[in-house]
Design a protein around this nucleic acid. Structure first.
Length: 273
DNA sequence: CCGGATGTTCACCT
DNA sequence: GAGGTGAACATCCG
């Protein structure tokens, strides 16, 4: 996604639905629903209910009604739209335009006393997102916002999984995606292949502080793609801090960029040089 | 034309 | 069981 920062922006916008009644459900793409429900199932469960709260856990946006709770996942190209407003204009690896044909799911929402209903819609070109009723989110780890060193220690345990893969694993920690993790590790000066379970207490504190700083700063700037490292995540990119060449590799199945100088190799547990 | 892309999930190895 | 890899999903972009 749309990582945590975009999901938070979507949740803020979706918050405008609180107090409104769902009067219509539009499901343009039946495969966008999880749980084997049809569009009719979805409509009969939701039409007539009132949105009472909107929240977020990790990258998932939750609309709580006085009936079921609706979970929205945005995949890589999902954008949330409120009428003609889009909280996030453009996604880095998503399409550069907007098309009605990519709207997979929408709700019509009627506020009491208002003339016209609003539309809350999700546009998802690649269809990697989904909507689900009463989703089981028990596999998600603690949210990355507000994470503490002790929670990171719990999340990592003694695993030898590369730090980058551990931070991307939503079961350990919910909300960070590929771009945010590269930015965090770069700022913390940690090599992405460091075995996650070998971090010392002071390193866990530094990591937790860096996650908080990066999420706060990039939220203010406007998205997961506004990190200092981002413009250099390209061939011949150099470290914005010290000018050393960046290394491009694959860690945890994802493209990973790190500084050849200040994100040093782990002292042990790495593949032989 | 080809390869790669903010995510998730599953099959298949080691 | 843990963890890695690669594919698949479908589409856009350089």
């Amino acid at each position: 996604m749309p990582e945590l920062i975009e999901a938070a922006a979507y949740a803020r916008t979706a918050g405008r639905a609180v107090g409104a009644t769902i009067v219509e459900v539009m499901l343009a793409d039946p495969s966008w629903v999880r749980g084997g429900l049809s569009g009719d199932d979805l409509a009969s469960a939701l039409v007539g209910t009132e949105v009472v709260e909107v929240g977020r856990l990790g990258k998932v946006v939750l609309l709580g009604t006085d009936g079921p709770t609706l979970a929205l996942r945005f995949g890589m190209t999902g954008r949330l739209l409120w009428d003609d407003d889009a909280p996030i204009d453009e996604l880095v690896y998503g399409p550069k335009r907007s098309e009605e044909a990519w709207v997979r799911f929408a709700l019509s929402l009627q506020h009491p006393g208002e003339e016209v209903a609003h539309r809350l819609a999700v546009e998802d070109a690649r269809r990697l997102g989904s909507v689900e009723l009463d989703a089981d989110l028990s596999d998600l780890g603690p949210d990355a916002v507000g994470i503490h060193a002790e929670q990171l220690a719990d999340a990592f345990g003694t695993t030898t999984t590369p730090l980058k893969a551990a931070l991307l694993d939503q079961r350990r920690l919910a909300g960070l995606g590929n771009l945010l993790v590269d930015e965090v590790l770069w700022r913390a000066g940690m090599h992405p292949e460091t075995p996650a379970g070998t971090l010392k207490d002071d390193e866990l504190v530094l990591l937790a502080d860096t996650i908080a700083l990066v999420v706060a700063e990039l939220s203010k700037r406007g998205g997961s793609h506004t990190g200092d490292l981002q413009p250099q995540r390209a061939p011949d990119g150099v470290c914005p801090r010290d000018g050393a060449p960046l290394v491009r590799g694959r860690v945890g199945g994802r493209t990973t960029w790190w500084c050849s100088l200040h994100q040093r190799r782990p002292r042990w547990g790495a593949s032989p040089v």
